[in-house]
Computed example of a mutant assay.
Amino acid sequence: MIRVMIIDDSAVVRSVLQEILQKHAGIEVMGTAPDPIFALQKMERDWPDVIVLDVEMPRMDGITFLRKIMAEHPTPTVICSSLTEAGAETTLQALEAGAVSIITKPTTRLTEFLREYEESFINAVREASMARLGNIRPLARISAAPAAGLTPKPVAATGSTPPGSLLTREKLSADAVLAPGNGRSAMTRTTDQIVAIGTSTGGTQALEYLFTKLPVTSPGIVVVQHMPPMYTKSFANRLNQLSQVNIKEAETGDRILPGHALIAPGGKHMLVRRNGAQYDVEVVDGPLVSRHRPSVDVLFRSAAKAAGANALGIIMTGMGDDGARGLKEMAEAGARTVAQDEASCVVFGMPKEAIKHGGVHEVMGLDEIPARLLKHGGSLKG
C-alpha cells in the first residue's frame, strides 16, 4: 500500500486528487493539508510513503518545505505545479531540492483537467514510491551571477508549446509518428557521430551530472526527457548555464553539431533527420507514443533511420518502457547502445525494459556514461 499525503492550498485540488488516488488499489491517501505547517503536524504522527506537493502556498512555500523534508526525513515527493513559465522556473527549484517528478495543473477547468488526466497522477505516485532517493543527485543551485568558471551562453528563444498530458490510457507505438525502418544501417559509418539519449524519472538530475562532465568537443547530442510543456525550455536554459556544451530546447531545423545538445520540447516529438552531409532535427505534433510526448521511441527510431551506425543510443533512469523498442531498432541499424545500470538509476524501469527487449550492448553506471559518450565521438571503434 502506497500511503500519500497531499499538500495544496486549493481545497478543490485536495478533494479531487484524493478522490482520484483513493479509487485505485494499492494507494491510500492518509491525509491532506492546505499548507506545510498543517502537514508537518499530521506527519509527526504518521509519515507517508509519497508526498504530493504544491509549490506556492501560504505560511511556508513548497520549496522551503521540500528542503526541510529532504534534510531531515527524505521522502519521495511529486510536485503538482501550475503550467506556466513562472511555475516552470519554480518547479526546477523543486527538482534542485530533490523532488522526484512533476505533474501539472492548469489555471482554468481545474476539476475537469484533474479527472481527465487521472492516470497521469496515479502513475506519478506509483513511480515516486519506487524511486531510490539515494541515487538522486541534487541539482546545482544557480544564482543570478554565474558560478566561477561558468560563462552563460546565449540560448535561442523558442515559443512555448500548448499544454498536454504525458500519459494516456491508449498506448501507441512509434508507427503513429514515423514509419519503421528496414533494420539496416541508413549509411556507412563516417566521422560525423551523434548521440541520442532518452530518460524520465530521475533524468533531470542524471542529465545535469552528465552534461557537467562533458567538454565542448563532445559529439552532437539529442535528448528526450519526459517533462511537461514549458518546463523543457527552462530546463535546457539551466543546463546551458552549467555546461561547456551549448544546450537549447530544440526547434525544427536545428543542426546536431559537436559541442551542442538539443532537448525535445515538452508536448512535441523530436526526430533526427539526415540533411545532405549534416544531421538536424524536426519537431512535430502527433499522438502520444508509449504514453509520452515527447517519446524516446520516436527519437530512437528516427536516429536508427537517419544515422544508423553513426549514432550511439543511451537509455537512462525512468519508469515504464518508452525507448525499449526504439533502442533495439538502433542496434539493428548498426548503432551502439548503452543502458544505465540498476545500481545508479532512480527508477530502473526504462533501462530494464530495453535490456529485456535485447537492444542493449552495454550496461554501465551513470559515472561511466560521460566517458562512453566521448569515446563514441572520438573513435570509430565505438
Rank of each mutant, 00 (worst) to 15 (best):
T158K: 13
G164I: 12
K68C: 07
E127H: 11
P154Y: 05
L92Y: 03
Y117S: 08
A124K: 04
L92E: 06
Y117W: 09
T158Q: 14
L114D: 02
R126I: 15
L139C: 10
E85L: 13
A86E: 15
A144T: 15
A156D: 06
I136L: 12
P76L: 06
E112F: 03
G159S: 12
G87Y: 01
H73T: 12
A97T: 05
I136H: 04
I69A: 07
R126S: 00
A99S: 15
P138D: 06
Q93H: 14
L139D: 01
R126N: 04
T84V: 00
P74R: 11
A97K: 08
S173A: 02
G87D: 05
L110D: 00
P152M: 06
G98F: 02
I142V: 13
A140D: 10
A128M: 03
R137M: 13
M70L: 08
L172V: 04
E170A: 09
L139H: 01
A144D: 13
T111H: 11
Q93P: 00
T161Q: 14
P154I: 03
I142T: 12
T91C: 12
E72Y: 02
S82E: 12
V100K: 00
A145P: 00
E119A: 04
E118M: 09
S143I: 10
P74S: 12
I122D: 06
I136V: 14
T104W: 01
L166A: 14
A176C: 13
P106C: 11
A156L: 10
V78I: 10
I69Q: 03
A156I: 09
S82N: 13
A97F: 02
L150Q: 12
T90F: 06
L114N: 00
L83M: 15
K153G: 04
N135V: 08
A174I: 00
V100S: 01
K68I: 09
L114Q: 01
A131T: 09
R141A: 15
I103F: 12
D175A: 15
T107D: 11
P76T: 05
A174L: 02
V125K: 01
I136F: 03
P74D: 10
E89W: 11
E127T: 07
P163K: 09
P152C: 08
T77S: 14
Q93W: 05
S165H: 10
G149K: 03
T75V: 13
T104N: 06
L114M: 08
S101Y: 04
I79L: 15
S82R: 12
I122F: 09
S129N: 11
A174P: 06
K68Q: 13
L166C: 10
A147C: 05
T168G: 15
A145G: 00
A71I: 02
A176H: 09
